[in-house]
Design a protein around this nucleic acid. Structure first.
Lengths: 146, 146
DNA sequence: ATACTAGGTTAAAAAAATCAACTTAGTAAA
DNA sequence: TTTACTAAGTTGATTTTTTTAACCTAGTAT
């Protein structure tokens, strides 16, 4: 794998995996249930077949996507997400909410289906479960334990 | 502005603004305090001057960034973020946390500075402030009220 | 007078994405 | 049984983006 962003930064390294053009949108299509090559291709409208093919292969290699033969006769494939790519959901929600706030034309909203109120992203303590105010959030260098 | 992704989707439209190569990383550098052209350039290591220049101009046009002359003699500029780009913070946090979980080499962690515990992203009702479980989250089509 | 830094620009080359045509295997319809 | 159509791609040419590298202008520092 060639590294596009050779930086010691989670964000840069994550974008090395999902930052190429169309990649996040492809994962998102599969996430919302468009699982076959042509489903994805038609929904993304202007993506070309060869680029979609290239991206799906790269995503398979990264363990983001698995392809399954779902019909033998005729041979038909569908793509499924692994946990690794399903875990991008907060990224999608964050992008969606940013768009809700700042796009001239907004297409989607994220709501609480129990109350129909808008939803916002917050942060909570993994141990205590308590909500954490912005000012207590801290990004720290992390050394993986060996 | 040429639309790269001509799709009726918040995520695609948001990526039309911040999805170009290097763009999110440039915003992130300014966010963490590297505000001059050369600060950004040196921290992003392999970015070229002309691309950085192009991206900064595009970001200014989008209202994501403002440039200020902070020294007249010699003339020196610095770039600052607008609310619009500061509001990308949840996107950065989501990418960081994904990397924390899934990158072979993780560089950063997001912690609660009060407890030193890891932080997770949650969803909260904008009106009631209550935490919303995954199964009550709902993405709905949104029509801007006229 | 010479070198160095900040903040870029310009031109050429390389890499990535798009466009358009083609393929293969199967199904369906006339 | 010939024709048409669909799924899931591949191939090659063209165009657009990005990268590489060199250059520029002011001002500072030696």
């Amino acid at each position: 794998m060639k590294e596009r962003y050779p930086l010691p930064c989670n964000i840069a390294q994550t974008l090395n995996i999902v930052g190429d053009r169309w990649t996040l949108l492809i994962i998102h299509e599969i996430l919302v249930g468009n699982t076959t090559f042509n489903d994805i291709k038609h929904n993304l409208e202007t993506i070309s077949a060869n680029l979609l093919s290239t991206r799906l292969k790269a995503l398979e290699q990264q363990g983001m996507v698995v392809s399954e033969l779902y019909s033998k006769h005729p041979p038909r494939y569908q793509y499924a997400l692994t946990k690794k790519s399903k875990d991008l959901e907060p990224v999608f929600h964050a992008l969606l909410l940013w768009g809700r706030e700042h796009l001239d034309t907004c297409y989607k909203a994220l709501i609480n289906s129990e109350t129909d109120n808008d939803v916002e992203i917050g942060y909570y303590d993994q141990k205590t479960g308590e909500r954490i105010p912005q000012e207590h959030l801290s990004v720290i260098p992390f050394e993986r334990q060996t």
